[in-house]
Nucleic acid binder design. Sequence first.
DNA 1: CAGTGGTCTAGACCACATC
DNA 2: ATGTGGTCTAGACCACTGA
Lengths: 243, 243
Amino acid sequence: MGALKPTAQPLYRQVKQDLVKRVLSGEWRPGHILPSEFKLADEYGLSQGTVRKAIEAMAQEGLVTRQAGKGTFVTSHDGDYRPFRFHKFYTNYGQRIASDDAYLISAKPAFADKKIAESLEIPNRAAGTQVVRLRRVEGEPLLYERFFLSEQLCPGAEAAIKAENPGSIYSFVERHYNLLITKVTESLRAREASADERALLGMPIGAAVLEAQRVAYSLGGEPVEWRLIVGAADKTVYANEIG
Amino acid sequence: MGALKPTAQPLYRQVKQDLVKRVLSGEWRPGHILPSEFKLADEYGLSQGTVRKAIEAMAQEGLVTRQAGKGTFVTSHDGDYRPFRFHKFYTNYGQRIASDDAYLISAKPAFADKKIAESLEIPNRAAGTQVVRLRRVEGEPLLYERFFLSEQLCPGAEAAIKAENPGSIYSFVERHYNLLITKVTESLRAREASADERALLGMPIGAAVLEAQRVAYSLGGEPVEWRLIVGAADKTVYANEIG
DNA sequence: CAGTGGTCTAGACCACATC
DNA sequence: ATGTGGTCTAGACCACTGA
């Protein structure tokens, strides 16, 4: 099958690239099993050790998960693997603000503004779906999210989101569009809350908010989602670990 | 030398643990070279491949840096390796707020308050040094830092910091106390600026700040430094990449 | 039981650094 | 010329899984 290119790249890197491409193509879907190391080694005409190195690199990046005695599986956000990897907002009491209570405020067609278009590398005013949701813990509103999915990558997202109200958007885009989110970038700022935000999050005049702008990238490095997350300053913390 | 324990741990993990311990002990100082894979394999009575796996794991964690044809070196914050790994504050124009302009406001003896003591796992009111610094870019004050180093781990820090005014504290503790910082945790909040902060950072009444509380850990997992970073909300951004 | 990933060995060749 | 890490192979044994 996979004739390897005559580049100067090490073989295991070429194998990894090819395997990633095959995962992206949908040959192996999230949650499904890959052929064994020996089968792949046969296929590529290489030793098992070389294929192993390629797969281990993918496992390290979280693209696949290995289980001794069973096999290698394409990572899925639906499964139990690495849940909440991208959720870094917590309550003051250290409780993760997760997908439990996502109240859908609106989901409607929208056009990408300049900032969104640049972030998602799509034309200005490109069509898509904009969703606003509220996250609560024990009934108390803590933060709201506004996110945009382009119609090009995620056609029909509006109707599907309204129908499902999915807790995790990344699980949603994986199921519907075979897009596996593997990386996000976030920019955080502090600023004064607007009147709308004060009303929505139950904050007094002059209160501050913690605002994150996020871009989520798929396995192929393609920007998929733009998101704004706004948390009430006195109720939310952003916890980060580096190194 | 290193008699390996009869645990159920894989050999390469035991080797890694032992090598880490030897780095910690100061046997090989930051910036210095480790014995070659073959020498270490001889020493431990294992094959070169097993030692390689141990060293590769350390390299992945950033404890050592490998250079083909030269050797394996203990990572140093003084060298050119991974500078600014822990600096995530930027100006509005995407410029990293780095060590260029660190204005020392004060360095004086202090006692750990409850929060600091808990974070650093030291007794309440333990002695140490507290430093306050101001970071500017092009003369404009953007954020200030207040950090605490315990007298136990970093004796005489006050005098040394006053004498040197080091740009990078992690480089400083590495040189003076052989503590290599490999991990930090940060908690971010937004809040209204205090009067002192408004004066220090040149902000109007009602302005918000972005506040990070950080704990820095050494190679051994020991908490070394507690730090508060406060940035003017309208001038600073915290940029993060996950995955 | 056969198949899987996890570990470990022993050897080979390469490109690169240094002297 | 020698020594280093980087790659690759071929084989071994293990623990775990699932039929």
